[in-house]
């Protein structure tokens, strides 16, 4: 018999077979959610802005609306977590978290870093059989992950500042007074290669203003902004690979970056991961599946 108190705890009944593995990627800009069935098939993805209290917005994403798939137990679906009370999960559902907010969601069954999550999400979808490198650009950081078919071998994260991340693109779009979604189209219309030099988002903004005052076209500045993102990422670590995979929200919304990266290599195969923005959430769900298999080996291949 379940009681009200039971609803305060995540469902962890070992006798109930897990049917749905949920991954939540709590990023700086957006919360991404993905659900997989036992065979690793993608059931649904959702995203919303990262707002606070974080746990309420994660709850809403997992609960869905109306007939949507819900991870949250029926009795708790409309009852937001408050005062430390954790929602119950539906029997057969488990939730795993990644992203900067991963430690702040009390009702998940496990956590992992974005590095491993993006790797698992990419490898689950692409099932690559050779070594490769993932470039993931998120809202507040950029990551370069050197991977093999079975593990993360090495990684680098941008240091100290936001240049080369989503926050950088957002700030400069704001300076240029151009809506974010217009950036790729405008960049494609560039007719000159300009360079933004600064490491610093604020100083880059000043460079942009100076160039505007000299009469440069906005299209050229936006193209320069994208090239600057590529430069910032490539200076993080030496990349020696013949396969580059891109993941993350920035790559998903600004696919123009893919050829800009490619032109910096002599010969490289580039792949924009399917569901690029959800690779972290997918990886968190895969991590949950791996945890349950408990043999220490990835069971997603």
């Amino acid at each position: 018999m379940s009681t009200a108190a039971d609803c305060d705890r995540p469902s962890t009944d070992a006798t109930v077979r897990t049917e749905v593995f949920w991954g939540v990627d709590c990023g700086s800009a957006e919360i991404k959610v993905a659900a997989l069935d036992r065979e690793g098939r993608l059931l649904t993805t959702r995203r919303c802005r990262t707002l606070f209290p974080l746990v309420e917005h994660v709850h809403r994403s997992l609960a869905g609306q109306g007939d949507e798939l819900s991870a949250i137990a029926d009795g708790d679906r409309d009852r937001l977590p408050a005062d430390g009370r954790q929602p119950g999960l539906r029997p057969g559902h488990k939730v795993f978290a990644t992203g900067y907010g991963r430690h702040h969601i009390g009702f998940v069954q496990g956590q992992l870093t974005e590095i491993k999550a993006h790797y698992l999400g990419v490898q689950h979808q692409l099932r690559l059989q050779q070594d490769y490198t993932i470039i993931d650009i998120g809202g507040q950081d950029a990551k370069v992950i050197r991977a093999t078919p079975s593990r993360v071998e090495q990684f680098a994260i941008n240091r100290k500042c936001a240049a080369g991340t989503g926050a950088y693109i957002e700030e400069l779009a704001h300076r240029l007074e151009v809506p974010m979604q217009e950036l790729p189209r405008l960049a494609a219309a560039h007719d000159k290669d300009l360079t933004l030099n600064s490491y610093c988002t604020v100083f880059s903004g000043q460079e942009v203003i100076k160039l505007l005052m000299h009469g440069e076209r906005v299209e050229n500045l936006i193209h320069a902004l994208y090239r600057s993102v590529v430069k910032r990422v490539l200076e993080m670590t030496a990349i020696d690979t013949d396969t580059l995979v891109f993941s993350g929200g920035v790559m998903s919304h600004h696919p123009i970056l893919v050829p800009l990266f490619a032109e910096r290599f002599d010969e490289v195969r580039t792949i924009l991961a399917p569901n690029a923005q959800f690779c972290g959430a997918l990886g968190a769900a895969i991590h949950g599946m791996n945890e349950e298999s408990d043999d220490g080996l990835p069971n997603h291949q």
């Binding site: 870093t113 590095i115 491993k116 593990r151 993360v152 990684f155 994260i157 240091r159 100290k160």
Partner: peptide, 26 residues
């Protein structure tokens, strides 16, 4: 890990946590 001995303006709890945890995962 970027940081400093005394100047916490140069240290990010979040970034260092992710870096170190991800490193330990590998």
């Amino acid at each position: 890990v970027d940081g400093d001995l005394c100047d916490l303006r140069c240290f990010s709890d979040e970034q260092s946590t992710t870096l170190i945890e991800a490193f330990l995962e590998t």
